[in-house]
Simulated scan of single mutants.
Amino acid sequence: MAGRWQRAADVALALVVLLVAIAEIWVPFESRAGTGDPGWSTLQVLILALALCWRRTQPLPAVIVAGFAMITFHAAGVAYLLFNGQLVPLLLLTFAVARYGRGRDPYLGGLFVGGTMLLGDFTIPELGSASEMIFHWGALGLTYVLGTWQRLTAHRAEQARDRAVAAEARAVAAVLEERTRIARELHDVVAHAVTQMVVTAGAAEGMAETPEAVRRSLATIRQTGSGALTEMRRVVTMLRDADEAASRAPQPGLAALESLVADARATGLPISFEVTGQPRDLPAGLDLTAFRVVQEALTNAQRHARAVTEVAVRLDFTDQEVSIEVHDDGTACPGTGGTGHGLIGMRERVLLYGGKLRTGPRPDRGFAVEVALPLEAG
Rank of each mutant, 00 (worst) to 15 (best):
Met232Leu: 03
Thr94Gly: 04
Thr200Lys: 14
Val20Met: 15
Asp243Gln: 14
Phe317Ser: 05
Ile344Met: 04
Phe29Pro: 02
Ala332His: 01
Gly147Thr: 09
Asp162Pro: 00
Phe29Leu: 06
Arg216Ile: 13
Pro125Leu: 03
Phe83Met: 11
Val293Glu: 06
Phe122Ser: 11
Ala79Cys: 00
Ala49Glu: 02
Gly77Tyr: 02
Ala171Asn: 13
Glu244Phe: 11
Ala79Glu: 08
Ser217Asp: 08
Arg347Phe: 06
Arg4Trp: 03
Asp243Thr: 12
Ala79Lys: 08
Ala173Phe: 02
Trp5Ala: 15
Gly115Phe: 04
Ala33Asn: 11
Leu343Met: 11
Val369Tyr: 00
Arg347Met: 10
Phe95Gln: 13
Tyr107Asn: 09
Val97Asn: 09
Gly335Phe: 00
Ala76Thr: 10
Ala228Gly: 00
Leu343Arg: 14
Leu351Met: 15
Val63Thr: 04
Thr210Met: 13
Asp364Phe: 03
Gly330Asn: 04
Tyr144Met: 03
Ile25Phe: 02
Val27Trp: 08
Glu24Leu: 00
Gly103His: 00
Gln320Trp: 08
Glu24Tyr: 02
Val308Met: 01
His187Tyr: 14
Arg349Pro: 02
Ala228Trp: 03
Pro89Phe: 02
Pro363Val: 03
Val350Arg: 10
Val27Ser: 13
Thr57Ile: 14
Leu176Ile: 15
Met70His: 12
Leu152Val: 06
Thr336His: 11
Glu126Ala: 07
Ala297Tyr: 01
Asn300Phe: 00
Tyr107Val: 13
Gly360Phe: 05
Thr94Tyr: 00
Thr42Ser: 09
Pro363Phe: 01
Leu352Asp: 12
Leu48Gly: 01
Glu24Gly: 09
Phe73Tyr: 07
His136Glu: 06
Val16Gln: 09
Leu19Gly: 06
Ala301His: 08
Phe83Pro: 01
Val198Met: 08
Ala79Asp: 11
Ala14Pro: 03
Pro125His: 07
Leu19Pro: 15
Leu315Pro: 04
Leu373Gly: 05
Gly147Met: 02
Arg303Glu: 12
Glu178Arg: 13
Ala246Arg: 11
Leu13Asn: 11
Asp105Gly: 02
Gly277Asn: 11
Met232His: 10
Trp5Ser: 05
Pro28Val: 09
